[in-house]
Design a protein around this nucleic acid. Structure first.
Lengths: 230, 230
DNA sequence: AATGATGAGTGTATTTTTTACACTTTTTAC
DNA sequence: GTAAAAAGTGTAAAAAATACACTCATCATT
């Protein structure tokens, strides 16, 4: 590179760059988010999202997956970029530019033993506690993004176990969309999508009669690639 | 701040952070984007989006507005964040994290004399030339975001002059949505939105008969805040 | 063994929204 | 005066979304 070209970069300031992860899960008819009670400086005692600083040899997506893996034990988590936050005073400790990602996991599948190592706790997105930095805004934007996405893309299944009842699926949609859904209309739409298929198993836990278990068939979906639910 | 807290930040690398602006305009029945033919190093001779490095005392939004003002002479431009791009090799000159914003301007209102100062040129988004970095991907993501937004939010008016004919408005929608729209159905929907109002003026340029000019009334829209077009 | 309680499962009619479609009007250029 | 060009206008059909109520299977209780 020429001298001129080097100066092109070097005349400019550099910044700490971070990722913050809005990790969503669905339990007890609530959309929950994983927070951390910080027992370290800076901002000890505050609740925050799980995050980390971008390192030299990784992209933001890789950094987010690293953070996700570290806190859940999972790999290859479904994730979407929410946005990048850069207000001058968003982190009073230093100037940090942070990109938020939301992630969807199933609470049965992750390593919950890790929680106590970093003081993680699940909270309902309906009654968020006080959260430090601009993380409340991040959560709200993520929730809105998820709300819009879930009707037209089969991302919601990441929040459910591999097999699930239609009642579970419906509750998930009701909670995320924030409105009641008619059972018959919901099931009609589900039955039109052949990639939501019966496993043949019956769930005997949730009801006396027992409810058919279903699974999302990704291969079939990839052939059709059309999704509309509610 | 404690020593520990300082280390929390200092142990991490810092990065150049940039903004890239996808400046859209509508002319000749095309959605156009403003590019720059670089006559400076690095990457002299390449076409790129208009961008700039984030500085210490500004947010990304402020940096984007600065870049937008510098290249168009306009202030307070409508703008939306597209996403942040961080691939390791996206800029071979140095590691740069870049946040893309799309902006909507009207070509009649900006300072076109500035173009020659930075070798700016408008190109159709339908036939993009070779563009350097990951800027093609940025443009495509921006175009898709705009396509989704325009049906449910009155952002398209930023691409039109303050008063416009319904034919112009319809062509704008057809071009951005990439599909023909039925004239009568389109006008029916427009007439339902009282904040798209006749100015009383007649445009005699675009047709022999003359066509009524309309304007978007932001105050009325803010009261209603409901928008659906096509 | 009968009964009550619980959630599972199922179809049709109505309303709303979206789409398809063709001619008359006004003006200018020739 | 007439041909050409774009403006302007309403109704019917189709599709999509919504509203709605009962029977079924099983378990727990008596």
């Amino acid at each position: 590179m020429t001298q001129k070209a080097k100066e092109y970069y070097r005349d400019n300031p550099q910044f700490y760059v971070a990722v913050d992860c809005i990790i969503f899960a669905f339990e007890n008819d609530e959309l929950q988010v994983l927070l951390q009670q910080r027992n370290f400086e800076p901002f000890r005692g505050e609740k925050t999202l799980l995050g980390g600083f971008l390192q030299d040899e990784e992209s933001l997506e890789e950094a987010a997956q690293r953070v996700l893996h570290f806190h859940t034990g999972l790999t290859n988590i479904y994730m979407e970029q929410v946005g990048t936050f850069s207000a001058l005073d968003r982190d009073p400790g230093a100037r940090v530019i942070s990109t938020a990602y939301y992630a969807l996991i199933n609470k049965n599948l992750y390593d919950s033993a890790l929680l106590k190592e970093y003081d993680g706790e699940w909270v309902s997105t309906d009654h968020l506690p006080n959260i430090h930095f601009d993380h409340t805004k991040m959560i709200e934007q993520a929730r809105e993004l998820l709300r819009r996405k879930i009707s037209f893309s089969p991302v919601g299944f990441n929040l459910l176990p591999p097999s699930f009842t239609l009642a579970q699926l419906q509750r998930l949609y009701e909670v995320i969309l924030g409105q009641e859904i008619d059972k018959r209309n919901f099931r009609k739409r589900v039955s039109e999508m052949q990639f939501i298929e019966k496993t043949g198993e019956i769930d005997k836990v949730s009801s006396r009669r027992g409810a058919s278990l279903f699974q999302f068939n990704m291969e079939k979906y990839n052939l059709i690639h059309e999704f509309k639910l509610k």
